[in-house]
Amino acid sequence: MNHKLTFRLATENDLVTIIKLLADDALGALRENIELPLSENYTRAFTRISNDANQELTVGEINGEIVGTFHLTFIQYLTHQGSLRAQIEAVRVHSAYRGQGIGTKLFTYAIDRAREKGCNMVQLTTDKKRPKAIQFYETLGFVATHEGMKLKLGY
């Protein structure tokens, strides 16, 4: 990759591109709806994220084109002596740019943001149906220390 990857907070104008990135894999295609106009649910969620100082929806660009995204949430805990941790979710790289180190750069940037905010830990969840993603996270130093569980409430 010869072009510089730059990062910025997402704007509402980026929403369609971000949703398309989220839908651009086997599991995301089952969950997201990229029909235009986008569902108001996406706009409401974006507004809540953007207005919350503890959340950052970030895009990575090359020459003005969005090639990746992630959502970082800063969570205050009482455990670990009242520490702050970062939760990284919704990491996606545009399919045309995969395998070029962009995912690693997205994570490096996200981890640096967590350090800047004073977090003592970065955590993530990933679907067990994504073994390649799990291997990738392990190469970045993430360790599967807990078993995650979810209770779907519908939508």
Rank of each mutant, 00 (worst) to 15 (best):
G82Y: 04
L153E: 08
E89L: 06
K128F: 12
A86Q: 05
L140N: 08
V93N: 05
D25P: 07
I88T: 05
I49N: 01
Y155N: 15
T47W: 00
G118W: 02
K152N: 13
T47G: 01
I34W: 01
Q100S: 15
K105Y: 03
Y109W: 14
G148I: 08
L9A: 07
I66A: 00
N41M: 06
V16S: 10
G60S: 10
S83R: 08
N41H: 09
K4L: 14
G118Q: 05
R98P: 13
T43K: 12
S95R: 13
Y109T: 04
T79S: 15
R113S: 10
T58C: 14
F46P: 04
L106Y: 02
N51D: 05
R85M: 15
Y97G: 01
L140I: 08
K150T: 12
A53D: 05
L151A: 09
L9P: 02
L5A: 07
C119I: 07
E138T: 12
F7E: 02
V91S: 09
V91P: 04
M149G: 00
T17V: 11
V143L: 13
V93Y: 03
R130L: 10
L57V: 06
G99L: 10
E61G: 09
I19K: 00
G60I: 01
I111H: 08
G148F: 03
Y42C: 03
S95A: 14
E12Y: 01
R48W: 03
R113W: 03
H3E: 15
G148T: 12
S83D: 12
D112C: 08
K132G: 15
M121E: 14
R98N: 13
T58H: 04
A110M: 05
T145M: 03
K4F: 09
